[in-house]
């Protein structure tokens, strides 16, 4: 199976608000796909439909070969979702959160799975503290770690780096790249062009309910040359400065 996600003519409205007006997309297995769009463009709505949380009005969407409306159970078996807003259990510790998900996925050795992920996401020291005491970045990392349990074929990440500091962002980026290298398909949304640039094999822009651009970074660059160059030149400099200061202190 080459196309992990296929979307055709997908429409969705909330009462009178037409959010998706016929979206067509295809995402290849093992690739990182970035969906860009401004606030309210409908990115979360699209992800929620793909993750079987929301029914669409018309059109079709299939994930890992199963239609999301016909066979949601099979889709759920293949996917994992990290929603826009961190969904961790504040009362449980970091480790308990991970163990909980591993148990719900009926995996053997949930404790070992938790330990591995804690290590990988630099949460080992905070493992036995309640997640409610974590910083925003730590919560987000725990959230993403919970999504990786069970090695899903497709991972949806809705604005995974919003609210993270540059270091945290780069950590998440590296995780995402490693996932794709191991064959996982990653579908993420972002509001930052630069994030899409860093990560994505394919980028699509959702605007006013439709995909107005879709292709590789190079293809998109050819579409909007001037605006893009300027943005790209400015942003990394700020970050580099920040990183060098933070790094220099240690």
């Amino acid at each position: 199976m080459k196309q992990m996600i296929q979307i055709q003519g997908l429409q969705k409205s909330f009462k009178n608000l037409n959010v998706l007006k016929g979206v067509d997309l295809a995402v290849e297995k093992g690739s990182i796909f970035a969906l860009l769009g401004s606030n309210g463009a409908g990115k979360t709505t699209l992800i929620r439909i793909l993750a079987t949380l929301l029914p669409s009005d018309s059109g079709s969407a299939s994930v890992a070969g199963s239609d999301v409306s016909v066979d949601p159970d099979r889709v759920r078996r293949a996917i994992s979702l990290t929603g826009q807003f961190t969904a961790v259990d504040d009362v449980l510790t970091g480790r308990e959160n991970l163990v909980l998900i591993a148990k719900l996925r009926h995996l053997p050795q949930p404790q070992r799975i938790a330990d591995e992920l804690l290590e990988r996401f630099n949460l080992t020291e905070a493992a036995n503290r309640r997640a409610g005491t974590y910083s925003g970045g730590m919560r987000r990392r725990l959230d993403i770690a919970m999504s990786l349990i069970g090695n899903p074929e497709v991972i949806f990440l809705d604005e995974p780096t919003t609210g993270l500091d540059p270091e945290g962002r780069i950590e998440v980026w590296n995780t995402i790249k490693a996932l794709a290298n191991s064959g996982t398909t990653v579908f993420l949304t972002t509001q930052h062009l630069e994030e899409a640039e860093q990560l994505a094999d394919h980028i699509a822009i959702l605007h006013e309910g439709k995909i107005i651009a879709n292709g590789t970074l190079d293809a998109l660059k050819r579409l909007f040359p001037p605006a893009k160059d300027e943005y790209v030149l400015k942003q990394p400099t700020l970050e580099e400065i920040f990183l060098s200061i933070v790094g220099g202190k240690e």
Partner: peptide, 9 residues
């Protein structure tokens, strides 16, 4: 969003 997380699983 805890219920939502469970529902996508």
């Amino acid at each position: 969003g805890i219920f939502e997380r469970f529902r996508s699983m």
